[in-house]
């Protein structure tokens, strides 16, 4: 018995080291696979390219950062994209949070149908949703444009917020809210002082997801935008004649903001202890 300890340790040690190394290589491969395209996007924002097509490395430059507004329609498209994202995320976050609270906390008639509808909204192909939205707007006599894009974006991102919030609500001890009421808090105070801080990480995660979905949506936006240009639509148009480095820079900025908010959410959630 006493001999088996060291012997087995001696046998497993090198094998452990070998699998460790394999695991580390695997992790780096996955990270590379995920981040290489993003790295390329960022790097080519600094490319000193002369031609219209920004595909081969010509040397480092910062000049594109100073010429972000070189293409007026690009500026308009980016502004539209940001506005659409902000408005739709605001609407989605409020509606989705309320939905998540209801689904996680209460049993009610139509709950199963609501869950099904949410799942359908997530899993139905964008092409189908875009086409059907377009025919809906046309048959309802609604002119497509900024508003219809917002409606469409709320529609496809609502389920994501509802689901992330519901997950928080389900994992929350209901007696914590009762304790707040017991200690003299009104339903309103209880929500803002206790419930909301506790579901906040879920709300932020859902909002981030909704923002990410909205800012780069192409298919559904294409169907519902009418004459309104957005950033992805502009890029799609530009690819036929060559994509300027400004596109890479704007992409980099959007990516940086997303990462910053995600990190902030993770850090404050840990600090709050929730």
């Amino acid at each position: 018995m006493s001999a088996s300890g060291p012997r087995s340790a001696g046998r497993t040690r090198p094998r452990g080291r070998w699998t460790d190394r394999l695991l580390r290589i695997y992790v780096w491969l996955v990270l590379a696979w995920l981040f290489l395209p993003i790295a390329v996007m960022i790097v080519f924002g600094f490319n000193d390219t002369q031609s219209k097509s920004n595909v081969s490395w010509q040397g480092f430059t910062l000049k594109w950062w100073g010429r972000l507004d070189e293409y007026p329609d690009l500026v308009v498209a980016v502004r539209n994209s940001l506005l659409i994202a902000l408005v739709s995320v605001a609407v989605t976050t409020v509606l989705g949070t309320l939905m998540g609270l209801a689904l996680g906390r209460h049993r009610f008639r139509g709950q199963g149908a609501t869950n099904l509808a949410m799942f359908a909204a997530i899993s139905s192909p964008e092409l189908v949703m875009g086409a059907s939205l377009l025919s809906l707007f046309i048959s309802a006599g609604v002119e497509t444009g900024f508003a219809t894009v917002v409606i469409a974006h709320v529609l496809f991102s609502l389920s994501f917020v509802a689901i992330t919030v519901r997950a928080r609500v389900v994992g929350m001890d209901a007696s914590i809210e009762e304790a707040a009421r017991d200690l003299g808090a009104t339903p309103w105070t209880t929500f803002w002082r206790v419930t909301f801080p506790m579901i906040l990480p879920g709300v932020v995660a859902g909002a981030l997801l909704a923002f990410a979905l909205s800012i780069d949506d192409f298919v559904i936006t294409q169907f519902t935008s009418g004459a309104t240009q957005t950033f992805p639509l502009w890029i799609w148009g530009a690819t036929r004649i060559g994509m300027p480095p400004q596109v890479n820079i704007i992409g980099t900025l959007i990516f940086a903001v997303g990462v910053a908010v995600a990190v902030l959410n993770a850090v404050t959630a840990r600090r709050r202890g929730t």
């Binding site: 007696s175 914590i176 009421r181 017991d182 808090a185 206790v194 506790m198 709050r272 202890g273 929730t274």
Partner: peptide, 27 residues
């Protein structure tokens, strides 16, 4: 419950996880 003169100690304690001890007690 918020207008009754009694307070309850829950079996699961039901402490507010996002508040520290002082904030919990002062609530």
């Amino acid at each position: 419950p918020d207008r009754r003169d009694v307070n309850m100690v829950f079996q699961s304690y039901a402490l507010f996880p996002h508040m520290n001890v002082w904030e919990n007690v002062a609530f």
